[in-house]
């Protein structure tokens, strides 16, 4: 029963990743794509968590943290890129 639930959760998460991927490709504007990527990142975090439970291991907890950081940084830099045109501004001197 438990295993079935886990599997269901994993499948549902995968399907939601697929749907978000569609948005990444289709998404008429740039922000649509960035948001979709962020969603994918969060879903992957959840998926890794589910998989860790499934495999009953603690080895992937760092992965979850890392994806969280990366998704955050990625979304921030994309946003800045869309807003300002550059990611890292040069010093003004």
């Amino acid at each position: 029963m438990f295993e079935l639930l886990i599997k269901m959760a994993a499948i549902i998460l995968s399907v939601s990743i697929l749907i978000s991927t569609y948005r990444v490709f289709k998404g008429p504007t740039m922000p649509d794509r960035v948001i979709a990527l962020d969603i994918i990142g969060i879903n992957i975090i959840a998926l890794v968590g589910v998989v860790s439970v499934w495999l009953s291991t603690q080895a992937f907890l760092e992965v979850i943290l890392l994806i969280g950081i990366l998704a955050f940084i990625g979304t921030i830099s994309f946003s800045k890129f869309i807003e300002r045109g550059v990611v890292i501004e040069r010093k003004r001197d």
Binding site: L37, L47, V48, L55
Partner: peptide, 27 residues
């Protein structure tokens, strides 16, 4: 972006095939 998708899915594969260090690095 598609290349990025491929890369992240690869990281997921590393997760599924029980390679946490690889998954970290790959991400």
């Amino acid at each position: 972006i598609s290349i990025g998708v491929v890369g992240y899915v690869l990281a997921l594969f590393f997760v599924v095939f029980r390679a946490p260090d690889l998954a970290l690095t790959q991400l």
